[in-house]
Design a protein around this nucleic acid. Structure first.
Lengths: 336, 336
DNA sequence: TTGAAAGCGCTACCAT
DNA sequence: ATGGTAGCGCTTTCAA
C-alpha cells in the first residue's frame, strides 16, 4: 500500500526543510523563485495533497457541515439537500448528509456522529417522533451553529419554515368554498409542531365557516404512504364518510387518492383532496393534486444563510418564514 | 468561544498523565478501577468527544467514503444514496454525498475534493459529459477504492449496472409486438456507454424484426426534461412522425408524454411510449408509463459490497449486473 | 532566504 | 498501575 506524499517527503527529497516547503506551497513570501519552482514541480508530479486532518487538528476547524433530514429520498428534501450542498461548496464547506429515517433514535445518532465529527454547523429537520430536544441543546451548548427547517419546534433555535397554520387554513377554506362540508384531516402524529399548526389552521377554517369539528374525521397516525392508505380507507368506511380530505404531509395525498380510487370513487367529483409540498409527484398524479407548494431552493438558500450568520458569530435566534402558496389543480372541486 | 475538552485537559484536572486517560477511555487494561471510574465520570460530565482528526492523522484513516451522483434530487439516485448511507453507517463509515450537476467539470471537482479529503472509498455515477477518465484513474493510482454504478464506462474499474443493451432490446421488441413500426429513440448524448448500449439494443431489435433504422428517428441531444420536450416536438413534426418512442433516460419519458399530449395526440392510442428507471414518477404519470424498472436498493447494496471488498484489499475488478425488468403499464399498446 | 522546533489531540511503546 | 515521550502532517514563531 503506497502512502500519499507529504511536505516532509518533498523536503527530504529536495534536501531542504519542511517549513520551506510549507511556505512555498502556500505561496507565501520568503522563498527564492528557483527553489519555489522546484518544490512546486515536485508537488505537482507527485500529486501532493495537503492532509486535511493535519490542518483540522492544527486549527481546530473542519470546514464541514452536517445536514439531517427525515428522508433524503423524499423529493422536496432531496432538492433541498442539493441546494444546500451547492451553496456550501461555493463557500468552501463540505456536507455530511444524514438520514434520520424519521425516527428519534436515528436523529440522535446522526447528531452525535456529526458532533463527534466536529462539524462547524448542523442543519436539521425533525423526525416525526422527536419530542425531546436535549441532543439539540447539547449542540448549542457546545457552540455548534444549528438551524432547523421545515419541521421545527418551539425551542430557542433558529429556524426556517412556511406559515403552516395560515396555509392549512387557506387550504381548508378552499375546500369549503368548493362545497365540502365534511372535511377530514390527515396528518402525522401530534408530536410535530408542524402537524399541530396545520391542524389549528384546519380547525380555524372550520370555525370561521361555522362547521363543527368532527373527531372521527381527524386522523393522526403516522407519516407514511401505507398509513395514508389505511387511514383513508377507514375514513371512507365511516357511516358518514368525508367529502374532502386535507392531507398535510408529503405523500399522504397521493396514497389517499389511491385509496379513494380503489373504492371506485372519483376525485374530485365524489371527494376533494388537497396536499402539502410534494411537488413533482403532485403534478404527475392523476388527477393533478391541488397542493400547498413551497420552494426547496428558497428553503435551502435561507437556511444556509442563517447558518452562515451563526458561523460568523451572529448569535441571535431568528425564525424565518419561507414562501408557499396554494396551487389549485384538479383534485379539488371549484367554487360551484 | 469555549473549546472542547481533550484528554490532556482531563489529565491535567486529575493530576495524571494523558496516556492513562487514553487507556481508560478506550477500556484498555492497565488502569485501576478507581482511577478509571474517576476518568470516565469526568469525561462524561465534560461531554468529552475524541477528536476524530487527531485519530485520522494518527492512523491515516478517515472512516469516510464519498458518493458522487449526477443529480441527488432525481428520485432513483436519492433512493440509492439513502441506501448506501444506511449501509455505510452500519459499517461505521460516514458519507460525503456530492452532486456533479451532470457536468464533467462538476464531477472532477467532486472527485478532487473527495481525494483531498482522503476518503477511503468513492462511489460514482458518471456525468453525461464525461469522456475523459483521468480523474478516476488518479484515484486508482492513489489506491482509493472506486466503484462505478448505473452510468459506467469501458474502463478498468469495478461497476454495477443493469443489462442496458438487453433491456433496451426487450423494450423495443415490446413496442414492435404492439404494432409499432416507426419507433423513435430518445436518449442523451452518445458519450455515455449507457446510452450507446441502449441504442445498440434498440437497433438490434429493429434488425431482428427487419425494420430499417431511420436516422431522423434517433435523437441524442441532452438528458433533461426540456430537451425531452423539444426533441419529441421535433419528432412529431416530421413528415412521417413516429408511432412509438423509447425514452431511455430518467424523466425523458415523462416530458415526452407531455409533449405528445400537448399536440392533442393520445398515448398509447396514437403513439406508444416506454421509459427507463424513473420509478415513482412513472407510476404516477397519466397514463402510467411502461418502463424498465430496477431497484435502487439492490444497486445500493451491491455497490457498497463491492466497495467494501476493495477496501478489504480484494483488488480484482469486477462488473456486476443488477436486476431490472420491463414493467408493462398503460403507455404502450398491447399485442393486437 | 532558509532552518529548527513547538504544538494541535491522540496512541503506542518503553520505562518506572 | 502509571508516567514519559515520540510521532502522525501541518503551520508558525524564532533563530541563523
Amino acid at each position: 500500500m503506497k502512502k500519499r506524499i507529504s511536505q516532509r517527503d518533498i523536503a527530504k527529497i529536495l534536501g531542504i526543510n519542511v517549513s520551506t516547503v510549507s511556505r512555498a506551497l502556500r505561496g507565501q513570501s520568503g522563498v527564492s523563485a528557483a527553489l519555489r519552482e522546484k518544490i512546486e514541480r515536485l508537488a505537482q508530479e507527485q500529486c501532493y495533497r495537503p492532509n486535511p486532518f493535519a490542518i483540522s487538528l492544527r486549527f481546530d476547524t473542519t470546514r464541514t457541515i452536517g445536514i439531517v433530514v427525515p428522508d433524503v429520498s423524499f423529493s422536496p428534501y432531496a432538492h433541498f439537500v442539493k441546494r444546500v450542498e451547492a451553496e456550501a461548496r461555493k463557500a468552501g464547506l463540505l456536507c455530511i448528509i444524514m438520514d434520520s429515517d424519521d425516527s428519534y433514535a436515528g436523529e440522535v445518532e446522526c447528531v452525535e456522529l456529526l458532533e463527534s465529527m466536529h462539524v462547524e454547523g448542523v442543519i436539521l429537520s425533525l423526525s416525526q417522533e422527536t419530542t425531546d430536544f436535549t441532543h439539540l441543546e447539547r449542540l448549542k451548548r457546545n457552540h455548534i451553529p444549528l438551524v432547523l427547517f421545515d419541521r421545527t419546534a418551539d425551542i430557542d433555535i433558529s429556524s426556517v419554515a412556511i406559515n403552516d397554520e395560515q396555509l392549512a387554513r387557506q387550504a381548508t377554506l378552499h375546500l369549503i368554498d368548493g362545497g365540502a362540508r365534511r372535511i377530514a384531516f390527515l396528518g402525522g402524529p401530534n408530536l410535530l409542531k408542524q402537524t399541530t399548526d396545520r391542524k389549528h389552521g384546519y380547525i380555524e377554517a372550520l370555525h370561521e365557516r361555522g362547521i363543527p369539528v368532527r373527531k372521527e374525521l381527524v386522523k393522526c397516525s403516522s407519516l407514511n404512504f401505507n398509513s395514508g392508505l389505511s387511514d383513508t380507507l377507514e375514513l371512507l368506511s365511516l357511516p358518514e364518510p368525508p367529502d374532502a380530505i386535507v392531507a398535510v404531509h408529503g405523500l399522504l395525498a397521493v396514497s389517499s387518492i389511491q385509496a379513494v380510487v380503489s373504492k371506485g370513487l372519483r376525485v374530485p367529483e365524489d371527494l376533494s383532496i388537497i396536499g402539502f409540498m410534494s411537488d413533482w409527484v403532485s403534478e404527475m398524479a392523476t388527477p393533478r393534486i391541488t397542493f400547498v407548494r413551497h420552494s426547496p431552493k428558497e428553503f435551502g438558500t435561507k437556511v444556509f444563510k442563517l447558518l452562515q450568520d451563526q458561523m460568523n458569530g451572529h448569535d441571535e435566534v431568528c425564525h424565518v418564514t419561507a414562501g408557499a402558496r396554494l396551487e389549485v389543480r384538479e383534485s379539488t372541486r371549484k367554487v360551484p
